[in-house]
Amino acid sequence: TISAAARRGDGGWLSLSGRKILVSDAGAARRLIVAVRLDGAPALVLLTPEDLPAGALRRETVIDETRRSFSLTLDGVTVAEDRLLDPDRAGATLEHLHLAANLLAAADMVGGTQACIDYTLDYLRTRTQFGKVIGSYQALKHPMVDAYTRYEQARSHLYSAAHCFNEQGTGEIAVRMAKAAADGAYSFAADRSIQFHGGFGFTWDCDAQLYRRRAIWHAAQFGDAAFHRKKLARLLF
């Protein structure tokens, strides 16, 4: 849902209002394309940092501290109407960008899942307890097999989505399946990694928390697994 708005003024100017949150890397961007509602329809407006008043861009504190996230306040921003991109293509462009962003996020999540599993297995193969390597205990073996199975499923969905991304209908279904599968796989693998590292896993010194934070961040971007499954229910049934 687009909550920001644009209003046409006298002399060919556009007045913007509203607020955007979780805008990645906005502090380093030389161009910003913001989605607004204009005359009841979605529209895209091109902005530069020079168009923004002081304080319009603020750094956010987010779960994944490796990300640079910003909130953008559009109140008081006025630009020439020629900054308005083709209104007839705005809706289709936003849908395409949404799917492309989810495909890229799924790829990042699948890669993160594999790295998280490798990181955890390395620990399970070297840490000893009660005179045995802890990776030899079934209570740890079986969840790691589950994590790897979920990873393989998510990777297959990702490859399928990348292959048929441009196919109308099929591409959207595949992308939403890929994001939902990657969300579940990444979260599960990172959760198990934290637990299997014991007390150390709950500290800043253990990299397991980095994977979990990245999984939460991706779930907050462009829809989590529940969001995409809801969309899939309408597409498939």
Rank of each mutant, 00 (worst) to 15 (best):
S3H: 15
A4S: 14
A5K: 13
A6E: 10
R8N: 07
G9F: 03
G11V: 03
L14R: 07
S15A: 14
L16G: 09
K20N: 09
D25E: 15
D25S: 06
A26E: 13
A26S: 06
A29G: 02
A29W: 13
R31Q: 14
I33E: 14
V34M: 10
V36C: 12
R37E: 15
G40H: 04
P42F: 08
E50D: 15
P53I: 02
P53D: 08
G55W: 10
E60R: 00
T61M: 07
V62Q: 11
T66M: 12
R67W: 05
R67I: 02
F70H: 11
G76W: 12
G76K: 08
T78N: 13
E81D: 14
R83F: 06
L85A: 05
P87G: 00
R89V: 00
L94G: 09
H98K: 07
A100I: 00
A105L: 14
A106G: 02
A106S: 09
A107E: 15
G112A: 05
A115I: 00
A115F: 00
Y123I: 01
Y123M: 09
L124G: 12
T128L: 06
G131K: 05
S136E: 13
S136C: 02
K141L: 12
P143H: 04
A147H: 05
R155K: 15
Y159C: 03
S160E: 14
A162P: 04
F165Q: 07
G169R: 09
T170G: 05
M177A: 02
A178F: 05
A182K: 06
D183T: 00
S187M: 09
I194Y: 07
Q195K: 11
D205V: 01
C206N: 15
R213N: 13
A215M: 11
I216P: 05
I216S: 09
W217S: 07
H218N: 03
Q221W: 07
F222G: 01
F222N: 04
H228Y: 11
L232Q: 05
A233Q: 02
